[in-house]
């Protein structure tokens, strides 16, 4: 029973990783860059929701929408100001810029909201705890909502990518940016849109993360962000089902590793998984092999 409860916790954490990983994988697939600041957009989203609930007295659903909306604006702004001028630059330059952006967001958050941890109000998700097997297995409302949200987001996103015009444009840009531009696709707008979707998802992930682990700090987003990137790489970067599988597997591995191997080594186990995966399957579980051309 303890194993089952750990497994459910792992699924819940993994669902959060999966939603964050979606943002990474979409941006990586389309803009071919590692958006290091994605983890910090999560943190900003959580802070906005926190303010909306605590200071502005908004109902939870409005707080969610406010967080998503503001994060979307933030994502588009970041892309337009920092990443767009570097389209032709080396990947080293883009990565350093992204790291700078990540630190910028963290330190701005620290200036605005202070370095002290805030406790995230539990009003966001009010669902009773589910008791199974005569009270031996308890699943909290947050866990259920997280897993459901993950499934819904995954279905909606897959439908969006495969059925809408914008989704088609995104697939084209990811396949061949130059050819897409020649076919009349506005590449800059498509990339902006990808950042917008990724950032809105980051806001959702931030709220779910802080509902499950209610400590909010300027550095809240960085570790889950890095782990979610690990998840995206694990599943095969650029692949949406890959992000889902990678995220859930990583969450389960982390929780089971902490429970059965060592609590102190939880993070080390996650990163060791990343290294092993990259060694034996450099393109991840569902990724396509990339050929290098001269």
């Amino acid at each position: 029973m303890i194993f089952l409860s750990n497994l459910v916790n792992g699924l819940s954490l993994g669902s959060i990783y999966a939603i964050i990983a979606l943002g990474y994988t979409m941006v990586y697939g389309i803009a071919k860059m590692l958006n290091f600041a994605h983890g910090d957009v999560i943190m900003v989203g959580a802070y906005i929701a926190f303010c909306a609930l605590q200071y502005w007295g908004m109902p939870p659903i409005l707080a969610l929408l406010a967080a998503m909306g503001l994060c979307t604006v933030l994502g588009i702004t970041i892309e337009g100001l920092a990443y767009r001028p570097l389209r032709q630059a080396t990947s080293l330059a883009v990565l350093i810029t992204a790291i700078g952006m990540s630190y910028l967001l963290q330190n701005l958050a620290q200036l605005i909201w202070g370095a002290n941890p805030k406790s995230f109000p539990p009003v966001m998700i009010q669902l009773p705890t589910l008791s199974l097997f005569g009270d031996r297995l308890k699943i909290s409302g947050v866990t259920i909502v997280t897993i459901l949200a993950n499934i819904v987001i995954m279905i909606l996103l897959t439908a969006f990518i495969s059925r809408t015009k914008m989704g088609k444009a995104m697939r084209c840009v990811s396949e061949d940016r130059g050819a897409a531009e020649l076919m009349g696709i506005n590449v800059n707008r498509t990339i902006s849109f990808t950042f917008a979707v990724g950032s809105a998802l980051a806001a959702v992930a931030g709220i779910l993360l802080c509902s499950a682990y209610p400590i909010l700090m300027p550095t809240t987003g960085s570790m889950p962000g890095i782990k979610a990137f690990t998840a995206a790489v694990f599943g095969g970067i650029g692949s949406i089902p890959g992000a889902m599988i990678g995220g859930i597997l990583l969450g389960v591995i982390e929780i089971l590793g902490k429970a059965y191997i060592s609590t102190e080594l939880g993070d080390a186990i996650v990163f060791a998984v990343l290294i092993i995966v990259l060694l034996f399957r450099p393109t991840g579980l569902l990724g396509k092999p990339i050929r290098e051309k001269v």
């Binding site: 920092a82 001028p85 570097l86 032709q88 630059a89 080396t90 330059a93 883009v94 350093i96 810029t97 790291i99 700078g100 952006m101 990540s102 630190y103 910028l104 330190n107």
Partner: peptide, 14 residues
């Protein structure tokens, strides 16, 4: 530092 890092990259790479 963060602002300098970003500006430095933007100035030397565009």
């Amino acid at each position: 530092y963060a602002v300098l890092l970003i500006l430095m990259m933007l100035l030397t790479n565009t």
